[in-house]
Amino acid sequence: MTLLMATTVACIALVSATANADVIRDENPYKLLEKVANETFNRIGAERDQINESLDHFRVIIREEMMPYVDSVYAAKRVLGRNLKDTTEEQRQEFYKVFRDYLIATYGRAFTQYDETKHTVEFDNANRFEEGSKAVTVYTRVIEQGRPPIRMDFKMRYDDNDNLWKAYDMVVEGVSLLNSKAAEISAVIRSRGIDGTIELLREKANEPIRNYDGDESL
């Protein structure tokens, strides 16, 4: 399994940048996920020359196309877990910010494996959505000819404040990105403290985007 599509469809996770007037809205999270993914993939293909000049251009695409739909604050709280109660309000706000930037960089590295000429994504049947639900898991499959499909499940929740479906976790071949990062960050907090963890995440977030080499650990 590659982290390729791990973040390839992470393009479909969700935050709260709903101040953006162009934000895509759909009461059906399955349809929303597909729309956001297609917008992102289309832009990657259209701006491939800029990406080839600098892989850091992925940051721009991810920030503008994906992050308006990634619930990074909710995900950050889940990652902190029990450590959340031991932080000050200032530390929490700083952690939320650097964790979002870290996600952008992580997604950017994963997208270096994406090739619009080779990969396609199959989306879950939108008719599976039950009206009135507030939490769903949307299944997708990344297809590359000659290789087994990569299974990716997106956990999404409805934000009543923003009136928007947001994804907060991605499960690739049964492995939760959120749970993996929670375990890593918990270990870092034990050794470095919350301030040291924030600084490490900031360093990782600011590293230049490079081709994914199979190591995304802190």
Rank of each mutant, 00 (worst) to 15 (best):
I24A: 10
A187H: 08
F41M: 00
R82Q: 11
E64W: 04
I150E: 12
E203H: 12
Q93S: 15
M5L: 15
M66I: 13
I189M: 09
V98A: 07
L178H: 05
K97A: 10
E130L: 07
D215P: 08
D159N: 14
E65G: 06
T2H: 06
E207P: 03
V172Y: 03
I150S: 00
E47W: 04
D213G: 14
E39M: 09
A13Y: 06
N125C: 07
N179P: 04
F111H: 03
G108I: 04
I44G: 01
N161Q: 08
A187L: 10
E184P: 06
D169E: 04
R48E: 05
R190I: 12
T7L: 08
A187Q: 06
E116G: 10
I61V: 13
M170H: 09
D101S: 13
Y30L: 07
R202L: 04
I44F: 07
R157K: 11
D86W: 10
A19V: 12
F99N: 02
G214V: 00
E173Y: 04
R151G: 13
N28M: 00
R128A: 11
R92D: 02
A105E: 10
A126P: 12
P208L: 01
R100E: 15
G214C: 01
K204E: 05
I61P: 00
S186T: 15
N163E: 04
Y107K: 14
F111G: 01
L33I: 10
E144G: 01
M5P: 10
E131V: 10
I198M: 08
Q113C: 08
E203I: 12
S16K: 13
T137K: 13
K35L: 05
T106M: 08
D162T: 06
L177P: 01
P149M: 00
E199Y: 06
E53M: 05
R59D: 14
N211R: 09
A182E: 10
R151I: 15
R48M: 03
V23C: 07
Y107S: 14
D101I: 04
E216G: 09
L218F: 15
A10I: 10
Y114K: 00
M152G: 06
E64F: 03
D195T: 13
T2C: 03
I143N: 01
N38P: 01
D169M: 01
D160T: 12
E89K: 08
A105K: 13
H57P: 06
R190L: 10
R100L: 14
T106G: 03
H57C: 13
N28E: 02
Y168A: 04
I44R: 00
N211K: 09
S54I: 12
C11Q: 15
I104T: 12
G214S: 00
L14S: 04
Q50V: 08
V79C: 13
R109P: 09
E64L: 15
T112K: 00
L178Y: 08
L178V: 11
L177W: 03
F154G: 07
R151M: 09
P68D: 08
S180C: 09
T106W: 07
R92A: 02
K77V: 04
G132T: 05
I150K: 05
Q145S: 08
